[in-house]
Design a protein around this nucleic acid. Structure first.
Length: 490
DNA sequence: TCTGGGGTCCTCACCCTC
DNA sequence: TCTGGAGGGTGAGGACCC
C-alpha cells in the first residue's frame, strides 16, 4: 500500500539572513552573511544574493569575505530567530499535534495525524495555506515539501527551494530519486559520499542497483541497510513530536591557540560552570562528564568519566572535567575546549557519598595513567607549572579569548577588566536605541566610533549616523518584531 | 587566512562477568 | 581449574545534521 503524501517538511529560506533582511530594510536584496566574525568564524547562513558569489554555510568567514567583499557581515541574534521560529512552529501545531522540529527553521508535520490532509489535493492545499500564513505572520518565505515519508518530504522541500512547494506523488519516488546525487540522501555526508564515489556510485539510482549486500559490505550493517532502503524511496520513520535531550555541552574556539596550562584549566572550569547552567536550565542532571580538546593541528580528542549517579552540581562537574584535563597533553596549543554532560536524567541524585567514591576511583585511575604516561613519553609532563601565578590571564575578551565573548554587544562583562576593555563595544548587526534618532542597528564600529543605521522592520531604508562609542544617548536594545508594527515616517 | 557550536547515532576496543 | 564465547558497560572517535 502506498502512503498518501501527507508528511510535510517545512524549511525556512536562508533563515537567519532572511530575518536580518526583514529587520533591516536597507539590506533587502543585498548579500547578507550571518556567522562568527572572529578570525576563526564560519558562515552560519548566507542570503541567496550572497550565494551567487559562492558563499555558503560552514565556509570559513575569511574565505567568504574574499568571495563577497561588499556583503553585510552580521553576528547571529538567536533570541530574535527563536521568537520568529516560535511563531512558525505555532502555525505548524495548528495543523497537527505531530510536529517534529529539527532546528529553529525546519520541521516535519504529520498532516494525517492532525486530520488536515488525507490525499495529495488536500495536502497541497494545506501547504499553500501554510506558506501564505507564514508570510503574513513573519514576512518571511518558506519552502514546503510533501510526500509519503520524511525522507521524501525533505527531498521535496529541498527541490522546491527557494520560496516554493513540491509534492512527490506516490509511485514516482524511484524515478525522481534515481538521477539525484547520493549526497541528497540524509546520512550521506562528505566521507560516505567519497567512499561511494570511489566505488563508482554517484547517483541514487546506482546506489539502488548496487544492492543491499554490497552496501552493507562497504559502509557497515546499520548504515548499509538504511542507505539501500532510502535509495528505493522507503522510509517508515514516524514523525516524533517529543524528543528527550541526550546530552548538553558547551564549547569555545579561541581566536589564538592557548598554550598556558593554567589558562587552559581556568577555561575548562568556566565551561563546566556554563554547562551546568544549561543542564539545570533544561531540568536535567547527568552521569557522564565529557571533556573535548581540539589541538593546534585540528586533531580532536575526547575524554569522559562516568559517575556513580547523575549530578547537576557545578563542583562535581568542574572536578571531573579538571581530572579529565590532567590526562590530556596540551603542549603545542589548544584551539578549542568543550565540556559536556551525557547520560541525562530528569532528577538529581544528591548522593555525595557515591560521587566522592567515584572521584576517588577516577583519581586513582588518573594517577595510574599518569604513571604509565611518564614511562612512555619523552619528558612530556604537559608543562604544568604548578603555581601558575597569572590566574587572571584567561579572561574572555583578552587576546585569545573565545570569539563569542569578544563579539558580545554592549559593555564588556566581568570585573577586573583594565580600563580600555571597559570601553563600550557595539557588535555589527546588534540593535540600538538612540535618545534622539530612535531605533537602529550597528553597521560598524572602530577607533572609538560607532556607525548606526536608523531604520526598523517596515520602515523605508534609513540614514546612517556616526557617534562616539561612549555616546550616552546610545543604548543597546531588544530586537523589534518583524511584522505587525506601524512605523511612523521619518 | 582554512575549518563554529550544539547535537545524534554508530562502531570499535577493552574490560568484566557469567 | 582452565578456556572460550556472549553480552553489558564504558571510553574514544568518526560521520553527519542544521
Amino acid at each position: 500500500m502506498r502512503a498518501a503524501p501527507t508528511i510535510l517538511h517545512l524549511d525556512m529560506d536562508a533563515f537567519y539572513a532572511s530575518v536580518e533582511q526583514a529587520s533591516k530594510p536597507s539590506l533587502r536584496g543585498k548579500a547578507v552573511i550571518v556567522g562568527g566574525l572572529g578570525p576563526r568564524g564560519v558562515v552560519a547562513t548566507a542570503s541567496y544574493e550572497a550565494r551567487r558569489f559562492g558563499v555558503h554555510s560552514a565556509m570559513p568567514m575569511a574565505q567568504a569575505r574574499r568571495l563577497c567583499p561588499n556583503g553585510a557581515y552580521l553576528i547571529p541574534r538567536f533570541s530574535l530567530y527563536r521568537s520568529v521560529s516560535d511563531v512558525v512552529m505555532a502555525l505548524l501545531r495548528e495543523l497537527s499535534p505531530l510536529v517534529e522540529p529539527l532546528s529553529l527553521d525546519e520541521a516535519f508535520v504529520d498532516l494525517e495525524a492532525g486530520h488536515t490532509a488525507f490525499d495529495a489535493e488536500s495536502a497541497l492545499e494545506t501547504g499553500k495555506r501554510l506558506r501564505a500564513e507564514i508570510l503574513a505572520r513573519t514576512g518571511l518565505s518558506a519552502s514546503v515539501g510533501l510526500a509519503g515519508s520524511k525522507m521524501l518530504a525533505k527531498v521535496a522541500s529541498e527541490e522546491a527551494k527557494p520560496d516554493g512547494l513540491l509534492l512527490i506523488e506516490p509511485g514516482t519516488e524511484r524515478a525522481l530519486l534515481a538521477p539525484m546525487s547520493v549526497r541528497t540522501l540524509p546520512g550521506v555526508g562528505p566521507a560516505t559520499g567519497e567512499h561511494l564515489r570511489r566505488a563508482g556510485i554517484t547517483t541514487v539510482g546506482e546506489l539502488a542497483e548496487a544492492g543491499e549486500d554490497e552496501l552493507v559490505r562497504m559502509v557497515g550493517r546499520s548504515h548499509g541497510v538504511g542507505l539501500y532502503r532510502m535509495a528505493l524511496g522507503l522510509d517508515d520513520r514516524p514523525v516524533v513530536a517529543e524528543r528527550d535531550a541526550k546530552s548538553v555541552s558547551v564549547e569555545d574556539t579561541f581566536d589564538v591557540d592557548l598554550h598556558d596550562r593554567v589558562r587552559i584549566r581556568i577555561e575548562v572550569q568556566r565551561l563546566a560552570d556554563r554547562c551546568v547552567q544549561r543542564l539545570r536550565a533544561s531540568g536535567h542532571s547527568g552521569r557522564t562528564i565529557v571533556l573535548k580538546v581540539r589541538r593546534y593541528d585540528f586533531s580532536t580528542l575526547t575524554r569522559s568519566e562516568t559517575l556513580r549517579g547523575p549530578t547537576d552540581d557545578p563542583a562535581v562537574v568542574r572536578e571531573a572535567a579538571a581530572r579529565l584535563l590532567e590526562a590530556v597533553d596540551t603542549t603545542g596549543g589548544v584551539r578549542l575546549l568543550g565540556v559536556g554532560v551525557t547520560g541525562l536524567a530528569d532528577y538529581t541524585q544528591e548522593d555525595l557519598f557515591a560521587q566522592s567514591l567515584a572521584a576517588e576511583a577516577a583519581a586513582a585511575r588518573g594517577a595510574e595513567a599518569e604513571a604509565r604516561a611518564a614511562t612512555t613519553e619523552d619528558g612530556g609532563d604537559g608543562g604544568d607549572g604548578g603555581d601558575g601565578g597569572d590566574s587572571e590571564g584567561g579572561r574572555p575578551g583578552a587576546p585569545g579569548g573565545p570569539a563569542e565573548a569578544r563579539e558580545g554587544a554592549g559593555a564588556a562583562e566581568g570585573s577586573g577588566e583594565p580600563d580600555p576593555a571597559r570601553e563600550r563595544r557595539w557588535a555589527a548587526g546588534s540593535d540600538v536605541l538612540h535618545a534622539v534618532y530612535g531605533p537602529g542597528w550597528v553597521q560598524g564600529s572602530g577607533v572609538g566610533r560607532v556607525t548606526v543605521r536608523f531604520e526598523q522592520p517596515g520602515s523605508p531604508p534609513g540614514r546612517v549616523r556616526t557617534f562616539r562609542v561612549e555616546d550616552p544617548d546610545l543604548e543597546p536594545s531588544d530586537p523589534l518584531p518583524l511584522v505587525g508594527r506601524t512605523v511612523p515616517e521619518g
